[in-house]
Design a protein around this nucleic acid. Structure first.
Lengths: 387, 387
DNA sequence: TCGATTTGTTTATTGGTTGAATTATTTGCT
DNA sequence: AGCAAATAATTCAACCAATAAACAAATCGA
């Protein structure tokens, strides 16, 4: 098999595309290595020659994406290597989140380090979309002012709702939004490139950085139940960007009526309200030992829905995030037996079930991450824009 | 957005990769146009220059992939264009299928035309895997002998079971197969590159050619119920190649016991046996008006499972194939109400439900198709091998 | 101090696309 | 019939990016 370049996009490839690709290859290779990597080591890792890597690195250093650091610890004879790392002063990503009862902003630098983080608790339901986004823009400006003068590559917004490709929020039931062009509003307010995505999708992205498994489904238990599907290291968004609505997968087709109009949706058995109702508790923080059976039942419902997902997509990893993360020890007893019984290939290969690495701020972090991930995936594009 | 070259593969790109890509681009552009296309028109369509296209076309013609034909109908002044089409003498694909009660082979030329097709009805269950595959190899040789001396790029085998990436059949319950290295056995017998895939996956591929929608789920109702998931014009195979087991998606979690050990799997409500049992008929060919309610119930079960699929993957098209194809008029009444009720985005965008273009030979055709599709996707690789 | 070793750079070469000029072949106009 | 305009395809010099090989730089070990 020769090196395939392009999967499906029907676009011509010229020499400049070769350079664009190899720039990304070098940048990502350096980014993905724990310790500083020399030019020679990068050449070995990528399959490019040292001469080529040197030339590419020159561009990346000049563009502020890579920086030379103290050589790695000595090892044998020879000229000492110059260490390369992602530049701490490289372009940062601005992550934004709007949710029912808070706004959040988060600045993450090119290395993935959180440089600043702001949360503003306030009920967004009575506020209209334009006002809410204006408030978020203010929060964003404050977050950007703090960490000093970093170039900012762009912003990404997480919303609890259905988002169309251009950044149009079609529906966000809990916010009361309909057809809000959040991307345009924020772009005007911040003067930055802005993308918008579903919160579960972006939270899944944050998990991708944290854990590294390239294929998994991330299930986020918030007021609704959503999922982010990561296939081959990339978010799967669906035909119209509305993938991941696991909360409305039927688990008991003739069961409880759901606010969506159907019956037996997962959300009615494993959503926050359902769990609290079953446990007889006023808040997830106040669950006690008596909540065990309620959580086990919720886990069973999750297990039923997830069995369908795994049978269909053949995933080997399920990540539970949002409010499910801390509850996993109790949910596991419900989920795992269902997966074992119902997943056809369960006896051929194990399914890993684990809690998300990040908690409540997974979505903002993932949003910020998506920005720097885009820079890392297309440094040539960033360099061209920045110049 | 600059032209992205590589999605995820971490491989360096050199000039030869550029040529490989652009060869594929030109070949596919010609392949996807209904009428013969000139070099100039191809240049315009691809964004390459005419000089480049001419050079690429020279290679493709020399390699027997493209051929010049009579110019397209005249249009205005100027030198008439030389028409280009896929060569009728170009490399063919050999599709193979092994199933419970028949073997099939099918030779499809580069243009997608079926050149020869053979089916041998015989119960494969009493036969062991090696013997069955030897029989299939014989059938294949007869199919290849017929259409005259065509170069054959490779073979693909459809099996009703779980297939690992290398072509190892892990389990094929209805054939009684366990860990059969079908790819290796056929490769030795035929002296051709051989790939192996699940029958539903390959049937879905045939539908991709027939219909052209790039995203859909193809549900195949055979003895088991399987699905092929096509995302972005490519088959989604899953982490281990075991995707599409929709037959074991739970639709009534506490319902009928399934042969897989779980309860309430779709197969128990919409599989062939279930339908025949409910309709009280001995064969699908003998269904009469009285079978209406049985088919409607099967459709309801399908609708429940498919609602989960669509909620999760945000697909806009569902294709019913295998024995479901001809039954769609009766199944539709069961499926559509469920999709309307249960798919969260049903009122934002319609879901198309349609019967497959091909019938029983969808899998063989898809298998043959997968071979020529691979040639079209990487002509440089084929030319290098052929030389 | 000197050779071995490894890193990084320089230089000529190669492969592939581009753009402009050139050749080829037709239609339309006079 | 003859000529201009138009369109198709090819040729050729220029350019761009990667490569290979030689070279310079910096360190270790004897």
């Amino acid at each position: 098999m020769t090196a395939r370049i392009l999967a499906s996009t029907h676009a011509p490839v010229r020499q400049s595309s070769v350079r664009a690709h190899n720039l990304a290859l070098v940048l990502q290779t350096v980014a993905n290595s724990a310790e500083p990597r020399s030019r020679a080591a990068t050449a070995a890792a990528t399959g490019l020659t040292r001469a080529t890597v040197s030339a590419l690195v020159d561009d990346l250093v000049a563009g502020g994406l890579l920086a030379e650091v103290a050589p790695a610890p000595r090892t044998g004879a020879g000229r000492p290597a110059a260490g390369l790392t992602l530049s701490p002063d490289g372009p940062a990503g601005l992550g934004l989140e709007i949710n029912v009862d808070y706004l959040a902003a988060c600045v993450v630098d090119l290395r993935g380090t959180v440089r600043h983080r702001l949360v503003e608790h306030a009920d967004q339901r009575p506020v209209d979309a334009t006002t809410a986004l204006a408030g978020l823009a203010g929060l964003a400006r404050r977050a950007l002012a703090e960490p000093g003068p970093l170039p900012v590559a762009g912003a990404a917004l997480a919303v609890p709702g259905l988002v169309s490709p251009g950044g149009l929020v079609r529906v966000a039931p809990n916010l009361g939004w309909h057809d809000v062009d959040a991307a345009a509003l924020l772009r005007d307010a911040l003067d930055l490139p802005v993308t918008v995505d579903n919160e579960a999708n972006l939270a899944a992205l944050s998990e991708l950085r944290a854990a590294g498994t390239p294929d998994f489904v991330y299930v986020s238990g918030e007021i609704g139940v959503g999922a982010g599907i990561v296939l081959g290291g990339a978010l799967y968004r669906g035909v119209r960007g509305w993938s991941g609505e696991i909360g409305h997968v039927p688990v008991h087709p003739d069961g409880l009526p759901c606010r969506c109009g159907a019956r037996g949706c997962l959300e009615q058995y494993a959503g926050q309200e359902a769990i609290l109702r079953a446990a007889g508790a006023p808040s997830l923080d106040l669950l006690d030992a008596a909540a065990g059976p309620a959580l086990r039942d919720a886990g069973t419902a999750l297990g039923i829905a997830l069995s369908g997902v795994v049978n269909l997509l053949d995933l080997d990893t399920v990540v539970l995030g949002g409010s499910y993360g801390p509850l996993l020890p109790w949910l596991r007893g419900g989920i795992e037996p269902e997966l074992r019984r119902r997943v056809l290939t369960a006896d051929l290969a194990p399914i890993t079930l684990r809690a998300a690495a990040l908690g409540a701020d997974a979505a903002v972090r993932g949003a910020a991450d998506s920005v720097i991930r885009a820079v890392q995936a297309d440094p040539a594009g960033y360099l061209a824009r920045a110049a």
